[in-house]
Amino acid sequence: MSTTVTTTGTKWWSGGRSPFNVEYGKLMMWYFLMSDAFTFGAFLIAYGTVRFSANGWPDPNEVFQSFPGLGNGLPLLFVSLMTFILIVSSVTMVLAVHAGHRGDKAGVIKYMIWTIVGGIAFLSCQAWEWTHLYHEGAWWGSNPFANHDGSTGHQDFTNFFFTITGFHGFHVFSGVVINIIVLLMTINGVFERRGHYLMIEKVGLYWHFVDLVWVFVFTMFYLV
């Protein structure tokens, strides 16, 4: 009982207990994510600043309008799929954390596998999209897409797109690698011997953050 009392009047700072009632590693994960939020924020604000300083900008619906196997003229469809893949993998991650609370090793393994599958599916979608755009002539330093008003496309459109989705994709990739490591540790019974599955929570925080960033990237690049 003593570790979970959160009644008012508890003297958190008088010593002998954790003032935030949270494990050190988890707290540090939160502060890391906060700093990472500033990194992504800086990228997105740079993008916004350049976009606000430009007279024209390409229309995302004209640029991102292809779906593998279905051809062109389908704006938002592929990115919707990517968004739902990440939301679903976030949900399976919550379920893994939930199973960890109950000490349900089989449940943690099952949901971690689904989360990893979701992450790999998202990365595959991104790989396809990048390849497709590359074959249309888009890359760092090369923007074949005209602006909304038909004028020559702003050069920074592709620079920002590839840098920011690339940085996010790199986070997804590291997330998948970390998830695989934690899955192997779960299978080997490391957390069972440790007596708790707090590691799943910490990894889960990182994974949700990746989903959170995608919410912003998706809105800023594909919708507005």
Binding site: P58, A146, H148, G150, S151, T152
Partner: peptide, 8 residues
Amino acid sequence: TEKTHQGS
């Protein structure tokens, strides 16, 4: 802002 493309 000059048009260089027929349509995007």
